[in-house]
């Protein structure tokens, strides 16, 4: 095994032996090699804790570190861009036996990942409100309108009230009074420079996902009504418009090359 290969395996996995070929002035290489092992593991644990602060608070520091350590061993980063590290963390948490007693933990991680992605998403500017108003005033063509949403807009449907849980943790409130067993749909977006999280009716997320996959306004609204008979199109549009989330409007579908 080449030196860097052995070094790399041994820093990621504390059970692996210290690589051969190391020396120190007093012959004690293990405690010195341990500095690298500690730096690598701590650095990656901190990167995960930075992206998943609510998950970290829910399970406590010790549990989070041990869970993260196992994740790191299984899925080390494949990019030097640390803000993208952990896209598979939520799936890992979902399969992590010791976290079974917190069934909402994996979806909490999914929501936090969407927040990080929204924070760093590409910049795009809201469509001119006058153009928007003009287009929305023509009811006969309204259904064929295609809306381009801001790249930071994302949705999550969970069997647990993770948006409420997330919100409680932003304000340092205790989450003990929350009924987490209720299903909840969530919209994440970046408004100006801030990421915002909204607990919404399931029709909203169905509507947004349909728009994002290229459907026109009419079919997207029909789909949302099918999912949620109480879906209110004007309220859903109001949420998007008031948060600068509609970045383009076109009467015909965009033709991709």
């Amino acid at each position: 095994m080449r030196l860097q290969e052995a070094f790399s395996a041994a820093v990621l996995d504390s059970q692996q032996p210290c690589p051969r070929g190391l020396v120190s002035r007093n012959g004690h290489v293990e405690s010195r090699f341990a500095v690298y092992r500690n730096n690598v593991q701590k650095g990656l644990i901190n990167a995960l804790a930075f992206s998943y602060p609510v998950v970290a608070r829910l399970v406590g520091e010790y549990f989070f570190q041990e869970m993260a350590r196992l994740f790191i061993k299984k899925s080390p980063p494949d990019s030097p861009i640390m803000s993208t590290y952990g896209v598979r963390f939520a799936d890992f948490i979902g399969d992590f036996e010791p976290a079974r007693s917190l069934p909402y933990l994996a979806d909490t991680a999914r929501l936090e990942r969407l927040c990080v992605a929204a924070y760093h998403a590409a910049d795009a500017w809201a469509v001119d409100p006058q153009v928007l108003a003009r287009m929305l005033k023509v009811p006969e063509s309204l259904g064929q309108l295609h809306l381009q949403l801001h790249p930071g807009v994302a949705t999550l449907d969970s069997p647990y009230a993770v948006a409420d849980l997330w919100a409680a943790h932003q304000n340092e409130e205790l989450s003990q009074g929350l009924d987490l067993s209720l299903p909840q749909s969530t919209v994440v977006l970046r408004y100006g420079l801030s990421v915002e999280v909204f607990a919404v009716r399931p029709g909203y997320t169905a509507f947004i996902r349909h728009l994002q996959s290229g459907h026109a306004l009419g079919p997207a609204a029909e789909h949302a009504l099918h999912v949620d008979p109480y879906f209110d199109l004007s309220q859903a549009l109001a949420l998007l418009i008031t948060h600068d989330a509609i970045t383009d409007l076109s009467p015909a579908p965009e033709i991709s090359p």
Partner: peptide, 13 residues
């Protein structure tokens, strides 16, 4: 060095 193969180790080795 900080990467080996596909893996980035986030430290200066």
């Amino acid at each position: 060095w900080s990467s080996h193969g596909p893996h980035f180790l986030n430290d200066l080795l």
